[in-house]
């Protein structure tokens, strides 16, 4: 670790801190203002008479429904990704055959496929399948596009489980299945945490698939709801900012509770 002070970098960090913090402050402060207060004092001033009216207004709208939809999508995507990627990563690490390494390469190539590119064909296939405006139609492709990154991350983590442990287990007469449950899974917990964090953020914040695959209030997710709010209330800044703020609160709560593992998890995506 480096000792001593680097004033230049420190000053730069201070400036960046302001750049990050001021908009966040403006969001919170605006959401607590009345509309008159906002149009008199603008987004930067402190609220003169703080009010929760805007928040209540947003909560009284379809927002709770969007929240529920987003939660359903997130849980389903995470469950799917974990169920699919954990065995895949296991076989990628433990099976050194040609077929498996070909499969792994296909997933690596998948890293370069932008979600945006498949919006049209996915829309086409999902409408043929009769899943348009159905949360399942959003969940399936969202999960699929989490697979490449998650496979890369988790196979990296599983590789750290030392071969000696597998050999010891083999001496005990254990097979692949037991090795999976007693070694691979427990010992790559941090990697699994990373793919959970990654896929949860992808699903929670996903925009494009909900945009082109859903239309009704019953299937709307929060990011799309925010987009609609912006179209309809672009001038009602306090309500708009309240909606943005409320949309982030669930993630912020998770962040406050599990900051360390979240940060570690995300660091895991960039490689260790």
């Amino acid at each position: 670790m480096r000792r001593g002070h680097n004033y230049l970098a420190g000053a730069a960090a201070g400036v960046w801190l302001l750049i990050i913090a001021i908009p966040l402050y403006a969001m919170v402060s605006s959401s607590l203002k009345t509309r008159t207060d906002f149009s008199n004092s603008g987004p930067l001033a402190l609220p003169t008479e703080p009010t929760l009216q805007n928040m209540l207004e947003v909560i009284a709208s379809s927002f709770p429904r969007y929240l529920l939809n987003t939660a359903i999508v997130t849980v389903a995507v995470v469950a799917l990704v974990v169920a699919l990627v954990v065995p895949l990563a296991y076989v990628v690490v433990r099976n050194r055959g040609r077929a498996v390494s070909t499969i792994f390469r296909v997933f690596l190539l998948g890293l370069a496929i932008p979600v945006q590119a498949v919006a049209i064909p996915v829309f086409y296939l999902i409408s043929i399948a009769g899943l348009y405006d159905n949360l399942i139609g959003v969940i399936l492709p969202t999960a699929a596009f989490c697979l490449p990154v998650c496979t890369l991350v988790l196979s990296g983590a599983m590789r750290d489980v030392s071969p000696e442990m597998y050999e010891a287990l083999a001496l005990d007469g254990g097979g692949s299945f037991r090795a999976f449950w007693t070694l691979a899974v427990p010992l790559s917990r941090s990697g699994i945490a990373t793919i959970v964090v990654y896929s949860a953020l992808q699903a929670w914040n996903g925009f494009l698939f909900p945009l082109v695959l859903t239309q009704s209030v019953d299937t709307k997710t929060i990011p799309l709801g925010l987009f609609d709010f912006q179209t309809q209330f672009s001038v009602n800044m306090p309500a708009l900012m309240s909606a943005v703020l409320l949309s982030t609160i669930p993630v912020l709560i998770v962040y406050l509770i599990a900051r360390r593992s979240l940060v570690q998890g995300l660091m895991g995506i960039g490689g260790k």
Partner: peptide, 14 residues
């Protein structure tokens, strides 16, 4: 010593 896990493990994800 252990037989490597078979392709079946990769099938669902693939």
């Amino acid at each position: 010593a252990m037989r490597p896990p078979g392709l079946g493990w990769a099938a669902p994800a693939t």
